[in-house]
Design a protein around this nucleic acid. Structure first.
Length: 362
DNA sequence: AATACGTGGCA
DNA sequence: TTGCCAAGTAT
């Protein structure tokens, strides 16, 4: 059976207009008062959608306020230095999101005069703009009936239609996009898409869904069958790898701190960190002293242990043995290696794990 | 298709 | 405490 026939079959006996009405009516009275819902500024909607990728609403809210205050318009963000943009994102995670957003906004300023394109083709070609963000921004900001299928929507619809496809698989999202394309309200695509997500966040939750107060309970096949707790089907990923290494808060004779910029791709790209042996973990403290002395061209006689730190990423677990040490400085700064004062330290974006090490040092 | 890519919250 | 995330995208 091909995809279209499959979707046809799924939608058989489904009351589309009644569903739209029940869902949107609920959304209009029950939706949360969120900062990105104050207006339809495409730039602000876009920023919020990028921040919300894999990130909780409660976490995003303070970042959104601060980011918009700092970069109130698309042009303001386009004109900003990446250093400042990354700093505004510090602690939010998935930092390539904001580097892509920065690049995309620059492109919009140059090619489209600073106006976010309402064309699916043009908008979706921008860096960091995938199928979800395309649908979300075009529907919410411009009222264009495009599906915006995120984890909430897949969960809600897997229950409504009793769909048992594994939502961890990339291909499954396309099936849900087909379905949403068929059932989306053309009168109000914005409220429809947001309502589906809001329902997933407030009522049709991953655990213990509140079916008794669900506005679309009468449309839900999983509820009718009593299987809502079994859905959605989602296979789990593999266990993260463990990596152990050392890091050091290195001061010079002026009391300045040595920091270095991480590579421009990969984990925590372009963020700053303290000297470490992440890529070639040394077997003992003496070897670490030798390594740091040679790599940074400093005279380092002794180090003191600060403590052991663990940081869990989605795919890696870092175990860092942290030290402090004072060194005789023999090297000049460049773009990616600097001696900075304690005050200057807060201009640079650090991964959370290095913030923890700094706090322990102070 | 499968994996890389962050973080903090919650049961 | 350990697991599972939460409004995804790039490769």
């Amino acid at each position: 059976m091909n995809v279209k026939e499959n979707v046809q079959q799924i939608l058989e006996h489904f009351h589309i207009e009644q569903f739209q009405h029940d869902l949107i009516d609920w959304f209009r009275t029950e939706q949360r008062d969120l900062p990105w819902r104050k207006n339809k500024d495409p730039y602000k909607i876009w920023v919020s959608e990028v921040m919300l990728q894999q990130t909780r609403v409660d976490t995003v809210i303070p970042y959104f306020y601060q980011f918009i205050e700092k970069f109130p318009t698309l042009d303001a963000l386009a004109d900003a230095k990446e250093e400042e943009v990354l700093k505004a994102w510090e602690g939010l995670g998935y930092y390539s999101r904001v580097r892509n957003l920065h690049a995309a906004v620059k492109e919009v300023k140059e090619k489209y005069g600073g106006r976010v394109p309402a064309s699916k083709e043009q908008f979706s070609s921008l860096k960091g703009v995938g199928p979800y963000t395309t649908g979300a921004v075009l529907s919410i900001a411009y009222g264009i009936p495009e599906p915006a299928v995120d984890g909430n929507v897949m969960r809600v619809l897997s229950r409504i239609f009793y769909i048992t496809d594994d939502i961890a698989r990339a291909s499954t999202r396309k099936k849900f996009e087909q379905i949403v394309s068929c059932i989306i309200s053309h009168d109000d695509p914005s409220d429809f898409n947001q309502a589906l997500m809001e329902l997933g966040a407030l009522v049709c939750t991953p655990k213990n869904p509140s079916c008794f107060l669900c506005p679309v309970q009468r449309h839900c096949r999983a509820f009718a069958e009593g299987v809502e707790a079994e859905l959605p089907v989602k296979t789990k990923g593999k266990a993260p790898k463990h990596v152990a290494f050392r890091a050091i808060v290195l001061t010079n004779e002026e009391g300045k701190i040595r920091i270095e910029k991480r590579p421009s791709s990969g984990l925590l790209a372009n963020l700053w960190q303290f000297p470490n042996d992440e890529h070639a973990p040394t077997p003992n403290e003496q070897a670490f002293i030798k390594e740091i002395s040679e790599r940074y061209h400093v005279v380092l006689r002794s180090i003191q242990r600060i403590g052991t730190f663990e940081h869990v990423f989605s795919h890696i677990v870092w175990h860092i043995e942290a030290y402090k040490g004072n060194a005789l400085e023999l090297q000049i700064d460049d773009e990616t290696n600097k001696w900075v004062t304690v005050d200057e330290l807060n201009q640079y974006a650090f991964p959370v794990i290095y913030q923890k090490i700094w706090q322990a040092y102070e």
